[in-house]
């Protein structure tokens, strides 16, 4: 049986009416207190997976347990254990932030005193106390996302689902949300299942990452492990005098095998990893070769995606994006 704070799925499949096989046999295990990043392009099946795990969409095949409860037969228990901020902050533009919290706490059956206290705490935590009595239509994207997060936390869930929580946010809002998610996992032991199409988000936040493409998980592991699977770092050098490109290539060849680079530079995949960097600088200096640009490239999750799917994550989501609400609307119309 899954731990009370964990997530487990086996052979999860979802086929939409007249639609594609959006999720195609996913196996998952998310440990308690872990931040699990579910990374993939638009249309990969991330949101559909979340909808099944939060009990809003029944799986076509397979099974899943969230917080120890079966998502099909024990839906109310699952919902009582989780908080969810689904794609696109689902807020009423005509209500204020405080009214949203009042509505949400009432729906969770809290007493008037608890409602007031919890709303105050959460508004403070997400930095919306000053804006609490303004209508949501006057909020920025970041404020909406923070309110969305606060609403997901009203009943102190042990598992939090965040579906693309930072899409469309400026960098400052994104960093603030990352900090709050990290704090929730670190200080409160909340398990976080986070979908994203941003490599840097998965890299910065997630303890483990699952990469999904066309409804299947194509790679899974910690960001460091996944990148290590792809290969060693590369060093690219652009000589100040472009005529010395061959000489630069000869020096770099001592440290690794050539690989792709910009037209005016040379690059090698390092044999001994990034520890060679200092030696390379010394060798270039010893040969009196002036360098305009020198850069160490660590393998990225995009490299992992490229290696596993043959495509770059950037721009891979050429399928028309369907929001969770739209998916449900289509399925239930």
């Amino acid at each position: 049986m899954t731990d009370r704070h964990g997530i487990e799925a086996q052979g999860l499949v979802r086929v939409f009416k007249k639609g594609p096989r959006a999720v195609d046999g996913i196996d998952l295990r998310v440990e308690p207190g872990e931040i699990y990043g579910f990374l993939g392009p638009n249309g990969a099946g991330k949101s559909t997976t979340v909808l099944m795990l939060v009990t809003l969409l029944p799986p076509t095949e397979g099974s899943a347990r969230v917080a120890g409860y079966d998502v099909v037969s024990e839906g109310p228990h699952v919902r009582a254990s989780i908080g969810a901020a689904l794609q696109e902050a689902a807020l009423d533009p005509l209500l204020t932030g405080r009214e949203h919290l009042r509505l949400q706490t009432t729906m969770h059956g809290m007493s008037a005193a608890d409602r007031k206290q919890r709303s105050g705490e959460l508004l403070e935590r997400v930095g919306l106390t000053q804006a609490a009595d303004r209508k949501v239509r006057t909020y920025s994207g970041g404020m909406k996302r923070r309110l969305d997060l606060a609403l997901a936390l009203v009943h102190s869930p042990s598992i939090l689902f965040l579906d693309e929580p930072t899409t469309g946010l400026d960098i400052q809002s994104r960093l603030a949300l990352w900090a709050e998610v990290e704090r929730l996992a670190r200080d409160e032991g909340v398990t976080v299942f986070l979908t994203t199409q941003y490599l840097e988000e998965a890299d910065a936040l997630a303890d483990r990452v699952g990469i999904i493409d066309h409804g299947k998980i194509v790679a899974e592991g910690s960001p460091a492990d996944l990148k290590a699977q792809v290969g060693r770092p590369t060093v690219e050098v652009v000589p100040a005098d472009r005529e010395e490109r061959d000489r630069a290539a000869a020096i770099l060849a001592r440290f690794g095998e050539p690989c792709g680079s910009a037209a005016e530079g040379v690059a090698v995949r390092l044999r001994s990893g990034e520890a060679d960097l200092a030696e390379i600088v010394r060798a270039l200096d010893a040969e009196n070769l002036k360098v305009e640009h020198l850069q160490l490239h660590q393998p990225s999750l995009d490299d992992v995606f490229l290696a596993k799917t043959g495509r770059s994550l950037e721009g891979a989501g050429d399928e028309e994006e369907v929001t969770p609400a739209a998916e449900l609307a289509l399925d239930r119309a």
């Binding site: 809003l56 689904l86 794609q87 696109e88 689902a90 807020l91 009423d92 949400q104 609403l151 929001t323 969770p324 609400a325 739209a326 449900l328 609307a329």
Partner: peptide
């Protein structure tokens, strides 16, 4: 329904 508020 369209905005997902009902899902919430």
């Amino acid at each position: 329904i369209q905005t997902g508020f009902l899902n919430r």
